Simulated assay, not measured.
Amino acid sequence: MTNPATTADVATEDDLAVAYPTPLLRIDAVSKRFGAHAAVDGLSLDIRKGEFFALLGPSGCGKTTLLRMLAGFETPDSGRIELNGEDIAAVPPHQRPVNMMFQNYALFPHLSVRDNIGFGLKNAGLTRVGIDARVADMIALVKLTGLEQRKPHQLSGGQKQRVALARALARHPKLLLLDEPLAALDKKLREETQTELMRLQRQLGLTFVIVTHDQDEAMSMADRIGVMHGGRLQQVATPRQLYEAPASRWVAEFVGDINAIEGEIRVRDGHRLTIEGHGTGTLFATLPQQPPDALAVCVAIRPEKIRLSRRGLAAGLNHSGGMNSIEGVVDDVGYLGGRSVYKLKLDHGATLRVALANTARLDVDAYAIGERVTAWFTPDDCVVLAR
């Protein structure tokens, strides 16, 4: 079985460079400190024209500070921010071809939907006729027709979000910044709005930069994701590359769920590694493109990559031939609707999490607590990282 991260259908950095050849935004060695704290620390990044880019990271990682510097609400202590080749680090917010949609929407409570959307267009030099036409276009674009005269308190959360989005788009910015724009919405509405944002971004051909701590949100919407931690970029990649080929243990543990097994490399044989895992016994892994220098490594395995078989029914599993197979007992079961998560207590002492799709309506094939099973996975399912 081939690791999905290495197959031809994966959108690579080179593929995206062809699709989006021009860096619209160039962030060059930008730093911002607040007292002794480095919120953004020497960060460099190119964002291409027409792409949907996500800044993903935990609270306090610097992603919102970076977004505010792009908008002009904060000034870098050092470095350059270039838009279309022009350094805009010292340009005031209202003079930048950049708009920002805030997390709390920042709507004017005394203004109607129409006036909220049109606010600021006078400064753009439009006539009254031009403003009315632009606002009408935005109302149709975000599907608010019939709500033009309502005030914000008469709108649902999703409708407020669309008003804020229409206002941000009304001045036809070259770059739209979105600061946790979906955080206040419930799960179903959030998913619907994600789809709507992606539709609008493609329809308008604009460059979107979204800040979020929600991994699913970033993975489902973005062409590329920049993972931030401690004011620095840890990895920039497509969603699939980020998930299937994380650059470090920190990224692997932050993006999605993994089983992190520490161990030591015992044998390097061509493209195959034999690793003695702590609490798992011998593991076989495919040699990564950038092998770790040290013998001490961490083997990361996604729970959904692991399969289960009842003991004695694991026909075709051949550990000596390179297939990983480990025996243990089901210690816990979590039913999550579309999938079930099993916690296994392995014979060698480690704990393994396994996620299996619930393909049958009834639980006739489910594994029960206390049942003895064999967990198996291929060498390609193992991501070998520096410990």
Rank of each mutant, 00 (worst) to 15 (best):
337 G>D: 07
16 L>N: 07
257 D>S: 13
235 Q>E: 12
141 L>R: 06
147 L>E: 10
38 A>T: 05
30 V>E: 02
369 I>Y: 02
142 V>H: 03
268 R>A: 13
356 L>P: 00
292 P>R: 00
226 G>E: 06
212 T>E: 02
384 V>A: 13
134 R>M: 07
172 H>Q: 14
215 Q>R: 04
310 R>Q: 04
218 A>S: 14
326 I>E: 10
129 V>E: 15
87 D>M: 09
251 V>F: 05
182 L>T: 09
33 R>C: 12
157 G>E: 11
191 E>I: 12
375 A>K: 04
11 A>C: 07
295 L>T: 06
129 V>M: 12
89 A>N: 06
280 T>V: 15
125 G>M: 11
107 L>K: 01
211 V>C: 12
216 D>W: 00
100 M>P: 08
106 A>V: 11
385 L>I: 06
340 S>C: 10
190 R>V: 05
9 D>Y: 09
387 R>H: 11
273 L>V: 06
227 V>M: 13
159 Q>E: 14
283 L>T: 01
290 Q>P: 00
288 P>R: 04
89 A>I: 03
127 T>E: 10
61 C>I: 01
85 G>F: 12
337 G>W: 10
144 L>Q: 03
315 A>C: 02
258 I>K: 04
173 P>E: 11
384 V>E: 11
33 R>H: 15
256 G>F: 07
323 M>P: 01
99 N>Y: 00
137 D>N: 07
343 K>L: 15
318 N>I: 09
2 T>F: 13
375 A>G: 08
325 S>V: 12
103 Q>H: 10
155 L>Q: 04
166 A>H: 06
311 R>T: 09
324 N>E: 06
174 K>H: 13
8 A>V: 02
338 G>N: 14
321 G>I: 01
12 T>R: 12
296 A>T: 09
371 E>P: 02
371 E>C: 10
339 R>T: 09
46 D>F: 00
262 E>V: 10
265 I>M: 07
176 L>S: 05
21 P>G: 06
314 A>F: 00
335 Y>C: 04
235 Q>A: 12
260 A>S: 13
357 A>D: 09
59 S>C: 05
318 N>L: 12
281 G>Q: 10
306 I>A: 08
351 T>A: 15
382 C>T: 05
373 V>L: 08
222 A>I: 01
330 V>S: 08
203 Q>V: 02
256 G>K: 03
323 M>N: 07
365 D>W: 07
85 G>L: 11
367 Y>C: 09
189 L>M: 15
93 P>W: 10
38 A>S: 14
114 R>A: 14
221 M>P: 09
243 Y>K: 02
304 E>H: 07
173 P>H: 12
211 V>A: 11
325 S>W: 13
263 G>R: 05
370 G>R: 05
108 F>C: 01
39 A>Y: 08
105 Y>A: 09
253 E>P: 01
316 G>M: 03
157 G>T: 03
314 A>K: 01
292 P>D: 01
62 G>M: 11
17 A>Y: 00
164 A>E: 00
75 T>Y: 06
384 V>D: 12
299 V>M: 14
